[in-house]
Nucleic acid binder design. Sequence first.
DNA 1: GTGGTGACTGCCA
DNA 2: ATGGCAGCCACCA
Length: 103
Amino acid sequence: MAVRDNRQAILNVVKQIPEGKVATYGQVAGRAGLPRRARLVGQVLSTLNDTTIPWHRVINARGQISQRKSGYEDYQRILLEEEGVEVSVEGKVSLDRYQWRID
DNA sequence: GTGGTGACTGCCA
DNA sequence: ATGGCAGCCACCA
């Protein structure tokens, strides 16, 4: 198996996140068979170019939208709110209520 | 081929 | 609650 396939596995998991729910990077990594590779998830999403991937449903373990270079954080907040996910002005999301539960 | 970088996380002060 | 640090490893120049 080529190492490159890890990316495909991650994307596959992200696609499975239901609308109105969110998942953490670590959660996605684990579900993709890559425990403790949360950072890789972020790396992969950052290089994404595919708008069919619901990358905005992936947030960090602290239940917040991760900060990066520019305004994409605000964009992510808007996308989540449109799906019915409440996001505070600080970018916080209530994991207790919106975290994606696997089975 | 080598090395810097980061959409992360858990632990500790 | 907030902030700093180390471990992690694929991506890109």
